[in-house]
Nucleic acid binder design. Structure first.
Length: 503
RNA sequence: GCGCCCUUAGCUCAACUGGUUAGAGCAACAGACUCUUAAUCUGUAGGUUCAGGGUUCGAGUCCCUGAGGGCGUACCA
């Protein structure tokens, strides 16, 4: 680095630092070193290396030559001997770079590497006197030059904004972040395997919808130029998945993104991942069994335990989860008996006692749900299936076999938060039409979250949807539960943020 | 949307009730060092204190506006 760039004399302002490293690139090229070579053939991951040689005695030398690659995270220069910590996706190992082994010129080249550089090395496996497994390097090759400095090697990257915007830097610097996403991927893989083992097929359905249905939420609107029409990003895949059951796929699931044009919070991101599944010939009771199996199995696969911690409180997911009706849970937590058969004025009176703001077109069922959400949901600590929601707030769920004003529907609540929503599906096309028409009237009346009327969906039902149980599980929230984090942004690789001010 | 809080070097953090030249560690640069482990030691450089305005003899610190973020709340199957 003897070049006359502004950075050559030890300057370290951001611009100068970059200029200095860019100048370093030129210097490397002049020496015939490609800072971005095309490939490197390794024969061991670092975990494999540790697995094979982890129990060598201190001070051991082997004549086993290995080729490994990774990112340089720490360098301890010691004059004619350099130690470095190399990390790949599987683990890390120490490099032992001795001038007497690789020669002065090679050693100086190694010492010129920066933290953050990717390198590939060849060398023999050894341990130091203190027993640290190391590769005694005989050849080292720069694989990719880092132009930006790593975050603080001890404290990592703490600034939340930067962690989310520059997730790559977060992942390099913070073990905690890597762990959260390891849990995420393991949990999703486990749930997928659980379903495939049980004969479910994974499908993909449209994300661009002509009618945003399957849930009640504000959609994102986009525009198709060639067709000159507005389309909606899906708020749920439900109606398409049930079309597939009509078509004869008896067990289907989809893991994918839903989009809802609503507020952000520690539990809400405008795009989030949902697992939805449908199984023919069963009802919501099987969905409860399946929810327990999916979530407990995901915990075991990702954490090796079924014990999770919510707000500092441990729960063992392995125990059977409580199943109780909304009505009895409200009675327990609010001390009132509420049912959609009660006159609206009476239920509204109860709602007012709990300071619930009431809208004019709400019926007893909607009021009952509001009372539940205000008084009960947040207080359900243990995993609980909340059963039997009012028909009024469940336009796609089948009416309860024992009560015409309730549906066979449940939500799963753990630590006061919702994780799943499921029902015995409504498969009577005539009734479905009536219920969707009621939703459409709400929409026409100004309710921008009413479900749109999807005529083709009703047509599909007219071909016959078998008795079917269906469920949606909020994957991001399950991952939060397993990873023990309290913000959804921590489990999203790239959470939604406002645009960054130009650098 | 509303309320409270935060934003200081590439990173992690300091700076008493407003006080004069904004400090430290890591990273960087120069040097010493062949068994280190966040290596150590010596030296050097690095700042529009988020942006803009205001109050003041004097502002990182107080006030206003804006930007970004966090938490709460509202909305939200």
């Amino acid at each position: 680095m003897s070049d006359a760039s502004p950075g050559s004399e030890g300057a370290a302002s951001p611009d100068e630092l970059r200029a200095q490293r860019l100048a370093g690139l030129d210097a490397l090229r002049e020496k015939g070193i490609d800072p971005y070579p095309v490939r490197f053939d390794r024969d061991h991951s670092l975990a494999e290396l540790r697995e094979q040689f982890g129990d060598l005695e201190p001070g051991a030398e082997t004549d086993v030559t290995v080729r490994v690659a990774g990112r340089l995270l720490l360098i301890r220069r010691q004059g004619k001997l350099t130690f470095a910590t190399l990390r790949d996706a599987s683990g890390s190992v120490q490099l032992f770079v001795s001038r007497s082994v690789i020669g002065t010129e090679e050693h100086e080249q190694f010492d010129a590497l920066d933290l953050g550089d990717w390198v590939g090395v060849e060398g023999t496996v050894m341990t130091t006197r203190k027993g640290e497994l190391s590769v005694k390097v005989t050849r080292a090759q720069l694989l990719s030059k880092a132009l930006r400095p790593l975050p603080d090697k001890w404290h990592g990257l703490a600034d939340v904004d930067t962690r989310y915007r520059q997730r790559y830097a977060d992942l390099i610097a913070n073990e905690d972040a890597r762990e959260v996403f390891r849990v995420r991927f393991a949990a999703i893989a486990a749930m997928r395997a659980h379903l495939v083992e049980r004969g479910f097929v994974e499908v993909e359905t449209p994300i661009l919808h002509v009618v945003a249905g399957g849930a009640t939420a504000k959609p994102f609107v986009t525009h198709h130029n060639a067709l000159d029409m507005d389309l909606y990003l899906r708020i749920a895949p439900e109606l398409y998945l049930k079309r597939l059951v009509v078509g004869g796929f008896e067990r289907v699931f989809e893991i994918g993104r839903n989009f809802r044009n609503e507020g952000l919070s520690t539990r809400h991101n405008p795009e989030f991942t949902m697992l939805e599944l449908y199984e023919a010939f069963v009802d919501y009771h099987e969905m409860m069994d399946l929810a327990e199996g999916l979530i407990t199995g995901a915990a075991l696969a990702a954490l090796d335990t079924t014990v999770v911690t919510v707000d500092g409180e441990p729960f063992d997911l392995a125990k059977p989860w409580r199943r109780a009706s909304m009505r009895e849970l409200i009675a327990e937590h609010a001390g009132v008996d509420v049912h959609p058969s009660m006159p609206v004025a009476d239920v509204a009176e109860i709602a007012r006692r709990f300071d619930i703001p009431i809208e004019k077109d709400w019926g007893s069922g909607k009021l009952m749900l509001e009372i539940y959400e205000k008084t009960t949901e947040g207080n359900l600590r243990e995993p609980t299936f909340v059963l039997d929601y009012p028909v009024e707030v469940s336009p796609l769920a089948r009416v309860h076999r024992d009560d015409p004003l309730l549906t066979e529907r449940f939500e799963l609540v753990i630590g006061g938060r919702e994780y799943a929503n499921a029902f015995s599906e409504l498969n009577d096309p005539v009734e479905q039409r009536t219920r969707l028409e009621a939703q459409a009237r709400l929409g026409a009346g100004g309710d921008d979250e009413a479900m749109g009327y999807d005529a083709d969906y009703v047509r599909a039902l007219e071909f016959g949807l078998p008795p079917t149980g269906g469920m949606g599980i909020g994957i991001d929230r399950v991952v939060m539960l397993l990873a023990g984090v309290s913000s959804i942004r921590e489990v999203l690789l790239f959470p939604h943020l406002r645009p960054e001010v130009a650098e």
